[in-house]
Nucleic acid binder design. Structure first.
Length: 198
DNA sequence: CACCCGATTATCT
DNA sequence: GATAATCGGGTGT
């Protein structure tokens, strides 16, 4: 399937976050393909987003957010969990990323379950830390270009999501900038986080 | 170098 | 619902 080009990410992060729903995250690991459909995202911007990691300005940790669009920004959360962002922004003076919060397994769920250590098909890839664990994404993958066919992590054209199935809300776990409704998810999808029941 | 704090999750009550 | 686990990075001394 077609890899999304750099141009796809060259827009404001909330626009890209919405467009990423239904796209496929493809991980090539040990010559085996792991594929998940993106069902939940969050946008973070700069310089007008106090909740974003880029808000403090360029540092070693967040440098990927200031680099070329279409690359990976990966960081540790709470010292325990790894989170995966895709870099996107409209202009060179800006920075930002789109956090992948949940995917629906399309291919290779057995290996995802192995990496995760759980068998429940929902729990395997629901939640940003869990997605990284299931796809074996680590800090070593920071800065990787997601638009190159040679990369072992790419985003490819998936399915189109009906406009009325795209929902948005305030971001999860964020106290600042609550007015920004920059969390996007597919209505009714079982892998979207914050479901009372698994 | 000490201190503080999270873009989270699993496991309790 | 509440909380512990756990650590890298930013900040200030």
């Amino acid at each position: 399937m077609k890899i999304l080009a750099k141009q796809f990410y060259n827009h404001a992060t909330d626009v890209v976050a919405k467009k990423l729903l239904g796209k496929f995250l493809v991980r090539n690991i040990h010559d085996q393909l792991l594929i998940g459909m993106i069902v939940e995202t969050e946008a973070y911007g700069y310089p007008d987003d106090p909740a974003g990691h880029a808000y403090i300005g360029l540092t070693k940790r967040n440098s990927a957010l200031f680099g070329p669009v279409g690359r990976a920004y990966i960081y540790k959360s709470y010292g325990i969990h790894t989170c995966f962002d895709i870099v996107g922004y409209k202009q060179s003076a800006q920075a930002g990323g789109i956090l992948i919060r949940a995917v629906e397994p399309i291919q290779g769920i057995e290996l995802m379950q192995k990496f995760r250590g759980v068998t429940n098909e929902i729990q395997v890839t629901s939640g940003p830390g869990n997605v990284c664990k299931a796809f074996h994404i680590t800090l070593h993958d920071n800065h990787k270009d997601l638009t190159e066919s040679t990369s072992d992590i790419t985003i490819v054209q998936g399915i189109s999501i009906k406009k009325d199935a795209v929902m948005n809300s305030a971001r999860v776990g964020i106290s600042k900038a609550r007015h920004l409704l920059w969390r996007f998810y597919i209505k009714g999808n079982k892998w979207v986080t914050n479901h009372p029941k698994y």
